[in-house]
Simulated scan of single mutants.
Amino acid sequence: MRIVVQRCKQAKVTISGDTVGSIEQGLVLLVGITHEDAERDAAYLADKIAGLRIFEDGEGKMNLSIADIGGAVLSVSQFTLYGDCRKGKRPSFTNAARPEVAEPLYDRFNELLRQKGLVVETGRFGADMDVEFTNWGPVTLIVEHPFA
């Protein structure tokens, strides 16, 4: 699994003009899943992200987690994170898991975050979505498991 983690001041995802997920300060997660991913990868990354200390404390140091600040998560499935652009000019997406594999694992990942006490909003798997947010910092990280 590959996840782009972006700290945000606010975020929302809309489909055909209708808001389907919205948060105030917290994290926007773009979640990519490949063929070999399993629940152990989702569990590792849910734990990693829930504890990731990327919010500033009173001294201005990145020392607080999403739970520490009472923030929320907007999680969006993103198969293009496994796009391969090494050959030609058109990306290949053969490394992205098929929807019948990716969707249940994506749902499980979000459930694992909720089990850690986080508020999790989502887009809609496989839909054409508009994602809007204010990247706070900006802070953007890529976390993966297994490690690339």
Rank of each mutant, 00 (worst) to 15 (best):
I3P: 14
V4C: 09
Q6A: 08
R7V: 08
C8G: 00
K9C: 01
K9F: 02
K9M: 03
Q10S: 09
A11M: 03
K12Y: 13
K12D: 06
I15G: 05
D18M: 07
T19H: 07
V20D: 10
V20I: 15
G21V: 08
G21D: 07
I23F: 14
I23R: 08
E24Q: 06
Q25S: 12
V28N: 07
L29M: 15
L30F: 15
V31K: 11
G32N: 09
I33L: 15
I33N: 15
I33Y: 15
T34W: 15
E36Y: 10
R40M: 05
R40L: 09
D41F: 08
A42S: 12
A43G: 02
Y44D: 01
L45W: 08
A46H: 07
A50V: 00
R53A: 04
E56C: 07
E56M: 06
D57G: 12
G58Y: 11
E59Q: 13
G60A: 04
K61D: 11
K61L: 13
M62K: 04
S65F: 03
S65D: 02
I66A: 05
I66S: 01
A67Y: 01
D68I: 01
I69M: 09
G70Y: 06
G70C: 03
G71V: 00
V73I: 15
L74G: 03
S75F: 12
S77T: 09
Q78W: 08
Q78T: 05
T80E: 06
Y82I: 00
G83L: 06
D84M: 08
C85W: 15
K87E: 14
K87T: 12
K89P: 01
K89Y: 14
R90N: 09
F93A: 01
F93S: 02
F93V: 00
F93N: 02
T94V: 10
T94S: 11
T94D: 12
A97R: 13
A97T: 11
R98F: 06
R98E: 14
E100P: 06
E100N: 04
V101G: 00
V101A: 14
D107Q: 14
F109C: 08
N110C: 15
N110Q: 06
Q115T: 01
K116L: 13
K116Q: 13
T122M: 05
G123N: 05
R124L: 14
F125H: 02
G126E: 06
M129G: 08
D130P: 01
V131L: 15
E132P: 01
F133E: 02
F133D: 00
W136M: 06
G137W: 05
G137F: 09
V139F: 11
V139E: 06
T140N: 15
T140G: 11
L141P: 12
I142V: 15
E144C: 10
P146A: 07
F147I: 04
